[in-house]
Amino acid sequence: MASKKIKILIFFVMPALAVLVFIFSLKTGTKDISFFDTFKALFGYGEESVLTIIRQIRLPRIIMAMTAGAGLAASGCVFQGILKNPLADPFTLGISGGAVFGASAGFVFGLASLSWILIPFSALAGAILAVLAVYILSMRGKFNSKSMILSGVIISYIFSSAVMLVFSLSKTNQFYSAFVWLMGNLSAFDERLLPVVIIIVLAGTAILCLTGNIINAITLGGQKASTLGIDTEKTVKIIFLLTSLITASCVSCCGVIGFVGLMMPHIMRKIAGGNHSLLIPASALAGCIFLPLCDTLSRILFAPVEIPVGVITSIAGGIFFIVLMMKRDGEIL
């Protein structure tokens, strides 16, 4: 696609779509509300019951979905760039493994009943533990993509075994809470966390959007990047920690929502090309559109029963991926 068309798509069409999805998600649900009433409620007018549904139940959830979608997709895009591997995602380096371990341990040790903040906190602690472990392990290989991916895979394995250990020690009801959390869920987070997550994710994503050309240069490999004046090791360290912080904040509130971080950059790369200075904002916007849509589906598909949004993102992403693959003569990467 010509670069002008791509820019129009990214900077006009996609934000407009995001707004449409926002309004659509607000009005759709077990109780369908008209556009007019939705708008009224958004600005604080209308029936009490409608106001509650829109402003207190749906609005925070949709904002969280948009924030987490943008954060996960932008991080995925950046991870794919610095790891020089289009199959990487924000969870390749073990962050999800760490977070799941933290949260499951939290559920099993009964932290959920003590205070609302303890589960997200233990998830965050687990994620940070995993990030630090990968960081220290990668230092020996000077932060090249091989050493980072290898460390990530090892840490993920260790943590997933630890999760199994924790599960085998747990009681049924704790197991269920942990299991639902594990599949990615946008209905369970505490609203008091929302402002913190928004600030971290949006500020972090904004910074990532500015690093596009640095990441472009890093994808050329250490030798070339070095002669272009880039200290690859230092830059990769900083970007790795920043993306980890974004991912960890999303995961500790919403659980492990798979496929967004892998699929959004992939799909956008097919449409907009590989230039990260466009691809990172494009991926963020795609996540911002895709995740609230999936969440709305998860609310209405088997209403009144809600299914975890992670299930929807994985199925929808997978199907989309297959269609894309068939169209492109089997060339996935």
Binding site: S3, G81, K84, N85, P86, N216, T219, L220, G221, Q223, K224, T227, R269, G273, G274, N275, L333
Partner: peptide
């Protein structure tokens, strides 16, 4: 300026 033997060209840049 240096052109190494191995430059990664994995991404669809124009």
């Amino acid at each position: 300026a240096f052109m190494p033997q191995n430059v990664d060209m994995n991404f669809p840049f124009t």
